[in-house]
């Protein structure tokens, strides 16, 4: 066998190996979708790897018999509020970190790093008490504020990275033309940073959408449940309706996955550039 055939064989083998790994990685997704569509009982042994026949019944049932609409509405509200609030705050903070080197910005950068060490459980215990005392407990607005605060350090840091890529000369030129510093920022720099802005909006939206732990702790009444909390309520009943649960999981995961795929390239470059420069 000559070396060229050998190289080609190795490449082919590695390609097959890659596809096999991809199949294993994808399997839980496949199983979720198949289980939600399976027409006959899921409680059979051995499990059917390919469904014998397919039905949308479970999807119809979760929308008619469960509170999925309420959960969806609450989650959408919390995620959008988190996203808008977090982005508005992160834009300003990120710009300050990108353009100024003063005591306040250094202190803030150190705090952002430090915040990555804080255990969420230690925060949540007093936060629960504070929320009870201030009336933010069991309110979707309160939950959104808490979610936004938890994403804020990362969002600010990402925003700083996106502003860093825009040359300072852009603002200097605008200021020569008569803009104030703030005017140059909002009217000239911000539109240029639009792709980065979209990433921060999406990232904070996804975090607000997915969030479970704060919602579980800070929300009490069933009418205020978000999707992640509602989803786990299938579990506590006597027999778990796995087809309904998987159907609800698909409905819940879909927006998050789509948003993620939409921004992944930018999000990844923002997240990894810091680590790789090291």
């Amino acid at each position: 066998m000559n070396p060229r055939t050998a190289t080609m064989l190795i490449s082919a083998a590695l390609f097959v190996l890659t596809l096999a790994c991809a199949a294993i990685v994808f399997f839980p997704y496949y199983w979720m979708i198949v289980s939600s569509l399976e027409a006959t009982s899921l409680f059979e042994w051995p499990p059917r790897l390919v469904p014998s026949s397919i039905t949308m019944d479970a999807y119809v049932r979760i929308f008619t018999e469960r509170d999925v609409f309420t959960w969806f509405k609450n989650t959408a509200f919390v995620a959008s509020t988190t996203s808008i609030f977090c982005t508005l705050v992160a834009i300003n903070g990120g710009y300050a970190l990108s353009r100024f080197r003063t005591g306040s910005t250094t202190a803030f950068s150190i705090f952002i790093l430090f915040s990555q060490l804080l255990p969420a459980t230690l925060i949540v215990v007093p936060l629960y008490v504070i929320f009870r005392q201030t009336g933010l407990y069991n309110s979707l607005i309160g939950l959104a504020i808490a979610d936004a605060a938890f994403v804020l350090p990362l969002a600010t840091w990402l925003m700083k990275g996106f502003f860093d890529r825009i040359p300072v000369e852009v603002e200097e030129q605008a200021m020569v033309d008569g803009c104030t510093r703030l005017g140059a920022f909002y009217r000239i720099v911000l539109p240029l940073a639009l792709p980065g802005l979209v990433v921060v909006v999406a990232m904070s939206f996804i975090t607000g959408w997915d969030e479970f732990f704060l919602a579980r702790t800070l929300i009490s009444s069933q009418s205020n449940w978000v999707f992640s909390v509602g989803l786990t309520s299938f579990e506590t009943q006597y027999a778990i309706a796995w087809d309904e649960m998987m159907a609800a999981a698909v409905v819940f995961a879909l927006p998050a996955v789509l948003f993620f795929l939409f921004v992944q390239r930018y999000l990844v470059s923002g997240l990894t550039s810091g680590a790789v420069k090291g």
């Binding site: 508005l88 300003n92 300050a96 353009r99 003063t102 306040s104 915040s115 007093p126 008490v129 605060a149």
Partner: peptide
């Protein structure tokens, strides 16, 4: 002053939801 003004909203949110509870904790 400008960087301080720009950082104020973030500082307030993080102090109230992250720092204050940690101190309380």
């Amino acid at each position: 002053l400008l960087p301080i003004w720009l950082l104020t909203p973030a500082a307030i949110v993080m102090s109230v939801i992250l720092i204050w509870p940690i101190a309380q904790g």
